[in-house]
Lab assay of single mutants.
Amino acid sequence: MQAFVKTLTGKTITLEVEPSDTIENVKAKIQDKEGIPPDQQRLIFAGKQLEDGRTLSDYNIQKESTLHLVLR
């Protein structure tokens, strides 16, 4: 499924993900596309910070959801 990641600069990245993907996995995909190390990434969805060990389905993130990427 497709999900979108919006950065603070307003850029939107499109990712191909599965509901079973972990947040860690998603961060690795963002690193592949953008070169941002996962340890600098914080992903926010519905106002919550997403934890590495959880999956997209844990957070009820469905296709075409938009996550927000904040860098630390």
Rank of each mutant, 00 (worst) to 15 (best):
K29N: 03
I13E: 01
I44S: 10
I36Q: 02
L56N: 00
E16Y: 13
F4Y: 13
V70H: 11
G35M: 05
H68D: 08
D52V: 06
L71G: 07
Q41H: 04
G47P: 01
L67N: 01
A46M: 14
G35D: 05
Q62W: 11
V17W: 04
Q49A: 12
T22W: 04
N25K: 15
V5T: 01
T14M: 11
V70S: 08
P19N: 06
V70N: 05
E64Q: 10
F45Q: 03
K33R: 10
Q41C: 05
T12G: 03
A3L: 15
E24N: 07
V70Q: 10
L69Y: 01
A28Q: 14
T55V: 07
V17N: 01
V70G: 05
K29A: 06
T14L: 11
A28W: 11
R42Q: 14
L50T: 03
P19V: 08
K11D: 08
T7F: 15
L71C: 06
I23Q: 01
T14P: 06
Q62L: 12
G10H: 04
R54N: 10
D58Q: 07
T9P: 04
Q62V: 14
R42F: 15
I44D: 05
E34S: 14
E16G: 06
S57P: 02
V26H: 00
T66V: 14
P38R: 13
D52M: 05
R72F: 12
I36D: 02
E64N: 15
L56C: 02
K33M: 13
K29H: 04
L71A: 08
K63Q: 12
Q2S: 10
H68V: 13
T55S: 08
R72Y: 12
G47V: 02
G53V: 06
T7Y: 13
P38G: 08
Q49K: 09
I23T: 05
E16V: 12
D39R: 10
E24C: 06
Y59G: 01
T66K: 05
F45H: 08
L67V: 06
K48R: 12
T66E: 09
T12E: 05
E16Q: 12
A28I: 13
I44M: 13
Y59N: 02
T55F: 06
Q40S: 09
S65I: 09
T22A: 04
K27N: 01
E51N: 07
E64T: 08
F4W: 07
K48M: 14
I44P: 00
R54F: 14
K27E: 01
T66S: 06
S57T: 07
M1T: 04
E16A: 09
D21Q: 04
T66M: 10
R54Y: 13
E24R: 14
L69M: 07
L71Y: 09
N60L: 07
L69F: 05
N25Y: 11
I44C: 11
V17S: 01
E51G: 04
I36L: 06
V26C: 03
G10D: 05
L50D: 00
D32R: 12
A28E: 11
Q2C: 08
L43G: 00
P38F: 12
L8Y: 14
E64C: 10
S20F: 11
S57A: 13
T14C: 09
T55R: 11
H68A: 06
N60C: 06
G10P: 02
I23E: 00
D39Q: 11
E18M: 15
D58Y: 15
A46G: 12
K33P: 02
R42D: 11
D58M: 06
S65N: 08
L15D: 00
F45M: 07
G35A: 05
R42H: 14
R72H: 12
L69C: 02
E34W: 15
L43F: 03
E34R: 05
E24L: 14
F4P: 02
D32G: 09
F45L: 06
I13H: 03
P19T: 07
R54M: 13
R72K: 14
